[in-house]
């Protein structure tokens, strides 16, 4: 599903965020990406979501070589993945419902279909009763769950999460991870960057460790 071959990323300022990283994640698999901050976890996720382009190497997502995708095709590519951030990127000028509806609105879904899917997504994260709330009135954990609902509302084949539990206490973190496990159980490919090693090790999923832009544990190499 996700395949990286000798991928390097050097930023214009000379900083080499990733160096010859190769990685393979099968359809329906789930894996964790660990490492200190600055190890290149975020860069790797950004490359898969086409927020950044690699300096060298090849990335295939769902059989699609990302290098051949033009800027015009990027939006259609992003519609097949869901992205979750440490700071949830919610829009504060609209309700929880409208935040979650955004991907569907962009894809031109009709209102009844939008309402049905948004409520289904909010139900999955346990926030159906908060659909008309303003994001600022929610707790950090709830805001993160709204971000997750938005990432899965259009039923993406791939879910990418960058430190989704970064701001949460251990109990809430575990809840969020259980949520990702459940999405993975219904066939979604999940890749999560996190430095919460204790939590990760308890979940029994493969882990890739990045150190200064290089892969350390080679568990997931092709």
């Amino acid at each position: 599903m996700i395949l990286l071959r000798n991928v390097s990323k050097r930023y214009p300022n000379g900083h080499e965020a990733l160096a010859r990283v190769s990685l393979s994640l099968d359809r329906g698999a789930m894996a964790f990406l660990t490492g200190h901050s600055g190890a290149g976890k975020s860069t790797l996720l950004k490359l898969i979501a086409l927020i950044e382009r690699p300096s060298r190497g090849q990335i295939l997502v769902n059989g699609q070589d990302l290098a051949v995708l033009s800027a015009r095709q990027v939006p259609y590519f992003r519609r097949r993945i869901g992205i979750i951030f440490q700071d949830h990127h919610l829009l504060h000028d609209r309700s929880v419902f409208d935040n979650v509806a955004l991907p569907l609105v962009i894809q031109g879904y009709r209102q009844p279909e939008i309402a049905r899917r948004v409520r289904a997504a909010l139900d999955k994260v346990g926030l159906l009763h908060k659909e008309q709330a303003e994001p600022v009135t929610l707790s950090t954990g709830e805001q993160q769950r709204v971000g997750i609902a938005r990432a899965v509302v259009h039923k993406p084949a791939i879910l990418l999460a960058d430190e989704p539990t970064g701001n949460l206490d251990p109990h809430l973190s575990r809840e969020i991870m259980q949520l990702f496990l459940r999405f993975n159980q219904v066939g979604t490919t999940v890749l999560i960057a996190s430095h919460d090693l204790d939590l990760i090790s308890s979940l029994g999923k493969p882990t890739v460790h990045l150190h200064e832009g290089q892969l350390q544990r080679r568990a997931l190499e092709p």
């Binding site: 979501a49 927020i51 015009r72 939006p75 259609y76 590519f77 992003r78 519609r79 992205i83 990127h89 829009l91 000028d93 955004l102 991907p103 962009i106 894809q107 938005r150 259009h154």
Partner: peptide
């Protein structure tokens, strides 16, 4: 600006 960034992230085209 923030709204545009988020919209682009979830697959909004420039036309949208």
């Amino acid at each position: 600006r923030e709204e545009i960034e988020v919209a682009k992230l979830v697959g909004a085209t420039d036309a949208f």
